[in-house]
Design a protein around this nucleic acid. Structure first.
Lengths: 254, 254
DNA sequence: CGCGGAATTGAAAATACTCAAAATTAGTGG
DNA sequence: CCACTAATTTTGAGTATTTTCAATTCCGCG
């Protein structure tokens, strides 16, 4: 039985809104995208709860049984795989509005680790209940399929990056990708904070930390970007985009 | 109204079986996995038809509007992305029982090209009709989610391969992966035909064709494998598995 | 102020690439 | 079925990009 939202004088109380997807700044990007009020209410009712994580805290671990998907309310995460030899590969950096845990559906166990890059908060979405809801809210199901498919294409893009691109192009793609995602969230596409260490960047891009550092220095020297600690400013986004697309080459490292 | 299967004297006619998932040798691996007879019949009814492709023929092309998923009945395919600069990256090799086209759901257009590596046949599965069926057959929906999730984890494994592994380890992973997939289909895990060119292998593994050729020669000389044209035999699968896992190193190339 | 982790920079080394040539294989037509 | 041609694959030698190892600097934090 869905509990009516208007159980107080005002049709929607502030406290109810706070716990609702409708009141979340990410709902345009997240799972409830495109749902009407009624369906959002239904989704709200299955959300298991919120979970806050401190920097470096782990949301889930490889091989743990799969119960929830997680929607990031704020903060940043990294996901990484560990192989038999203990080496890890970061498979993605996720930010607010993005969904974590979809790789766990196939085997009913998590396939990677997810760790907060800064203090963050997620919504827990019990997958079994979400599946029940799919039968009642076709719009939600369709959007869920789009999100999963998007994850597939995102990973294909990373495969292209790792399989085909030189270091400088990989790094340009990385910067432009972050830029676009911040833009989609209403933040500046030109200036942003790197939430991950150089080591994480290198691991993700299939490069060593030293290579990443050299790349940063080189781009700086070329005047493409300016860097202050983890704050990056894209001074020549057009050139960076061209480099990311493979249209333009950077001069060799001196 | 599902048409009853027993509309002739025999409960299931040979011709009906031929067009049915139930009669397909791949139904244990493919979309209808785990469905009962009734639900298989429902799935059969939405299958658009079969399509045969000659070697090198294209099943779909990047940016084409998305209508169907494709289940491979027999044969092999490769999927590849093309970037702005025209370079391509093979994102996977698919064989009988595997599903093609899931990356197209997110944007309603295909995100890559799919090309037959040999004469092949696929089932066309109109996605809109499949979505309708999801509401009626929850088992089918659950299995579809598993398949999509499996594609996500598969790609994560490739990211690990491309980002973290040396050439010889990549190649060992490639061989062991093929071996396991043929085993799952009832074929020999020790001896199989490579359906793709050396160039395709190299492209997929982020290596040049020359490197692949050298790797083959080296593995041959070590006695791990024997090679005759495109026929490969794994002589030391345990060693190859260890190398794929990163437990064992191969001697350097002389 | 000093410690420790993170990041930068330099020099040497290694892996994989490029270019080139030879060998093998596949495809085609007689 | 064979011969011829084109395409693919193999092998070699030299090169380049990126890694490794090492030293230093920078920065946050107690």
């Amino acid at each position: 039985m869905p509990q009516p939202l208007n159980f107080v004088a005002e049709p929607i109380s502030v406290s109810a809104l706070k716990k609702s997807c409708a009141g979340c700044s990410m709902h345009q990007l997240c799972l409830p995208m495109g749902l009407d009020d009624e369906d959002i209410t239904r989704l709200d009712q299955i959300i298991g709860g919120r979970r806050r994580l401190a920097r470096d805290e782990r949301l889930y671990k490889m091989d743990e049984p799969f119960r929830n998907l997680y929607a990031i309310r704020f903060g940043h995460f990294k996901t990484y795989q560990v192989n038999a030899a203990g080496e890890q590969q970061i498979t993605g950096f996720q930010m607010a509005g993005e969904l974590l845990g979809m790789d766990a559906i196939s085997a009913d166990r998590h396939h990677c680790d997810a760790v907060a890059l800064e203090d963050s908060e997620v919504c827990e979405i019990p997958f079994t209940r979400l599946e029940e809801l799919f039968g009642q809210v076709p719009t939600l199901l369709r959007h869920f399929h789009r999100i999963m498919s998007q994850e597939i294409t995102r990973e294909q893009n990373v495969m292209l990056l790792l399989g085909n691109m030189r270091a400088e192009q990989r790094f340009a793609v990385f910067l432009i990708n972050l830029s676009a995602r911040y833009a989609a969230r209403g933040y500046s596409p030109h200036s942003f904070q790197l939430r991950m260490s150089r080591e994480d960047i290198g691991n993700y891009l299939g490069l060593t930390i030293e290579s990443v550092s050299r790349l940063l220095s080189r781009f700086k020297k070329q005047g493409w970007i300016s860097v202050d600690k983890r704050e990056v400013t894209l001074l020549e986004p057009a050139h960076l985009k061209a480099m990311a697309a493979g249209t333009e080459q950077c001069s060799p490292m001196n």
